[in-house]
């Protein structure tokens, strides 16, 4: 795992529980209520999708549902914005590519 790039702001007390999900096969710890993007950024995973044509890395950008750059693929759900998707225990997440 690369170095963590995001941490909780001092004074922010997240939900005490813990859960984990997988991203590209790696186990990612998360707090209940936390979004997938938040957990991934805390785990030091800045690349949330790769582009279709040039395979370029993309990550969290607008944080408000405009850009969809933080899209990830969740098994059983489809492509979602990771910044607006709460992490669920055991969810299987991959770099965004939709599947029929």
């Amino acid at each position: 795992m690369p170095q963590p790039k995001m941490r909780f702001i001092p004074g922010v007390v997240p939900n005490a529980g813990t859960l984990s999900f997988s991203f590209e096969g790696n186990e990612i710890p998360a707090r209940p209520g936390e979004t997938v993007a938040s957990a991934l950024m805390r785990a030091g995973v800045p690349v949330l999708r790769r582009t279709r044509i040039e395979n370029q890395p993309r990550g969290y950008f607008c944080g408000m549902g405009i850009c969809w750059e933080c899209a990830v693929f969740v098994e059983g759900t489809g492509v979602v914005r990771s910044c607006g998707e709460p992490a669920r225990p055991g969810m299987v997440v991959r770099l965004a590519e939709a599947e029929v």
Binding site: M41, Y60, F61, C62
Partner: peptide, 21 residues
């Protein structure tokens, strides 16, 4: 990745409680 918008930055703090290291 690592280039974010100002709104995205505010939401890091306000919606996710996060600060970059």
């Amino acid at each position: 990745p690592g280039v974010i918008s100002a709104g995205g930055c505010l939401n890091l703090a306000k919606a996710h409680g996060l600060v970059p290291e």
